[in-house]
């Protein structure tokens, strides 16, 4: 004869057997350790150049690559072609405080390393991730030289690219949060005569 207590403990044991594999404990060892080799498939370039790969390129080499892989969307003169969705890459110098600001790499972007990072990860639009490190350095050099940020003969590599001084390098500040003016008293209604 089974006692009711025996039945209860069998029932509780069965409950445990069911519930244990359902959810991991927060402190359980979950996930798989990864090696540096596995992580080397990824990249993200920092403004000081950390993450830049070996390689180099100049504007002359960049022009040839640009003509073949970029101009059809961004235009022969880097002016952008609206119908492709590709923005202009150069121009707009001294336009930011005017009534028609033109935000381009030349006029707006604060870091040259961002250019390398973006081309490498996202371009060309229909073949992302297909460029070699040398090609990305060359394209960066070409785009920067058209904007007269660097000279035509300058070689871009992991050492020189982070040192490029962008025209709008000092043009950004951290958002201060909700504008103080919003907390000022509402405008008084016009005085009655």
């Amino acid at each position: 004869m089974y006692t009711s207590r025996t039945l209860l403990s069998v029932f509780i044991a069965a409950l445990f057997a069911l519930s244990v594999p359902v959810q991991a404990r927060d402190d359980e060892d979950i996930g798989t350790p990864v090696t540096e080799a596995e992580l080397s498939a990824f990249f993200a370039i920092l403004p000081d150049g950390e993450g830049l790969p070996p390689g180099s390129g100049n504007a002359v080499q960049g022009l040839a690559i640009y003509a073949e892989k970029c101009a059809m969307c961004h235009g022969e003169k880097l002016e952008g072609i609206y119908d492709t969705g590709a923005p202009p890459l150069a121009g707009g110098a001294k336009s930011l405080a005017t009534k028609q600001p033109l935000k381009t790499i030349e006029s707006y972007w604060p870091y040259a390393t961002t250019l390398y990072d973006y081309i490498w990860r996202s371009m060309p639009f229909h073949e992302p991730g297909s460029l070699t490190a040398d090609e990305v350095y060359a394209l960066s050099a070409y785009i920067l030289s058209v904007g007269k940020v660097i000279g035509e003969g300058e070689v871009m590599n992991a050492q020189s690219l982070p040192k490029v001084k962008m025209p709008n390098a000092n043009g950004f500040y951290v958002d201060p949060g909700p504008d103080r003016l919003i907390y000022r008293p509402a405008k008084a209604p016009p005085a009655k005569k």
Binding site: L46, P101, I105, P110, T113
Partner: peptide
């Protein structure tokens, strides 16, 4: 430190009338 990606410098920053821009909004 922040990576200063395209989406937090060239895009998604707010241009003020003085020509400077607010970042990390």
């Amino acid at each position: 430190r922040p990576f200063m990606t395209r989406e937090e410098t060239g895009r998604y920053t707010g241009l003020m009338p003085d020509g400077r821009a607010r970042q990390f909004y």
